[in-house]
Design a binder for these strands. Sequence first.
DNA 1: GCGGGGTGTTAAGAAGGTGTGAAACTCAGG
DNA 2: CCTGAGTTTCACACCTTCTTAACACCCCGC
Lengths: 220, 220
Amino acid sequence: MSKALIIDDEPQMRRLLRMVLESRGYEVCEADEGQRGLQEAAFHRPDVILLDLGLPGIGGLEVLKRLREWSDAPVLILSVRDQEAVKVQALEGGADDYVTKPFGSAELLARLEVIQRRRGTRHTPEITAGPLRLDLLHHEARIADEALKLTPTEFELLKALAAHAGRIVTQNQIIRQVWPGQVSDPGEGLRVHINHLRKKLGDRGLRILNEPGIGYRLEG
Amino acid sequence: MSKALIIDDEPQMRRLLRMVLESRGYEVCEADEGQRGLQEAAFHRPDVILLDLGLPGIGGLEVLKRLREWSDAPVLILSVRDQEAVKVQALEGGADDYVTKPFGSAELLARLEVIQRRRGTRHTPEITAGPLRLDLLHHEARIADEALKLTPTEFELLKALAAHAGRIVTQNQIIRQVWPGQVSDPGEGLRVHINHLRKKLGDRGLRILNEPGIGYRLEG
DNA sequence: GCGGGGTGTTAAGAAGGTGTGAAACTCAGG
DNA sequence: CCTGAGTTTCACACCTTCTTAACACCCCGC
C-alpha cells in the first residue's frame, strides 16, 4: 500500500483528491500549507507527493526546492492553466509530472502510477552501501546499527563516496560536491579528511581505496 | 475506548446517535446547544465530535471556529440537504468530514473511524520521549509527572526535538518549525533557547546534545 | 641509488560554531 | 504609563572543526 501526501490549500481539492486516492487504495495524509507539507513529508515519508503550485505562504516551487534537499519522492504537480512558465520551473526543479486542473481521476491515477514506476517506488532519504547506512535527513551514519560520529565535512565526503559505492569517484567530483564554489582546487585538505574517515571507519568491512591520479573508491 | 461528543438540538437525533455510538462501544456525552457543547468539549476532551450545523443560538460554524482555537479533535459535521455552501465553509473551517441527514448507521460509523484513524497516526495529542511527555493540546510538558514551566518558544523547540527523540534534528529543521517564515536565518537566538531549555530540563535523565555544525539531539 | 609525483600522517594555527550571561526590545495587562 | 514575561540581540570565552603546512612514504622510471 502506497502512501500519498497532498499539499494543497483548498479543502475541497484535498477532499476530492483524498477520495480518489483512497478509492485506489492509497494511504493519504494532507497538508494545507507548504511548511506543514514539508514536515509531513519528513514524518510520513510518502511514496508520492501531490503538490499544488498555488500555495499561500512559501510557494510550491520553494516547497519543491526544500523537499529535494533530502527527498527523492516522486512529485506530481497540480497546476491551473496559465501557469506554463511556473510549470516548467517546477519540472526543472525536480518535479516528475503535472496535471492541469480540472483533471479527471483516471488521468490523475494513471500519471501517479507512471511516475512511481519510473522511480521504482524508491524514496528513501538514505544511502546504503553494504553495512553502511547514511540517513540524509538526520545526518546520521551507521555501520551495522553502530553510529559513527562524523563532522559535517566527513559526512558529505562519505556521502559522495557511498553514492557510487564500489565505483571510482574522481577527485574533482568529490571536491565539487563537498566544497561547492571551488573550481579547480588542488584538493589540499581532501587527503586529510580521507585520513580521518578511514580512522573512523576502522576495520569494519568498509575500506576507502585510492586510485592514484584519479580518485577514491568505497569498497564494502 | 473512544469518547464521542454529540452537539445537536434535536433530542430524537441525539437519542439515535447515542444508541448507534454506544452500540459500537463509544462513551457518549451530549450538548443541545453550541455554548454548552464547547464547555463539554473542554471538560470531557472527546476523541471525536459530531456537530450539527443547524444549531440555534451560536451556529455550528461558530462552534467549530471557537473549538479549533484550542482543539484538534476530529469533527464530523451533521448536515441536511441544501446546505452545500455551509458544508464547504465547515470543511474550510477545520471539519474533517460530513454526513447528510438522513444517514445510515453503517456510513456514520465508517466515517467516524476514518477521521479518527486519519488524526490518530499523526496529530497525536501528545509526544513522549523517555520520561518526557508533551501534551500538545494544552501546551504542557511533564517529566515523570512533574510539570515543566516552558515558554511557547521553548515548548515548540522541545516538541521539535522530542518528535525525533534520539535522532539528530538539523538546525534548519528546528528553525523552520519554531520560526516559520524565516528562510535562511543563521539561528541567532536558537542557542539561547537551547540554553534555557537545558536549564529547565535540569538533571532528570534528559539531555540535549549538540552535534556541531549540524543540529541537536534529545537523548533520554 | 636518485628524484619526482602522488599519497598518508601528524601537528598547529585559523576559522567558525557553541555556551552563557546580560542588556535591549516587544507587547499585553494593569 | 509602568510592569513583567518573553524574545531577540550582543559580547565574549570556549570548544570543535577546517585548513594549512611540513614531512615521511611508496611506487615508478631513470
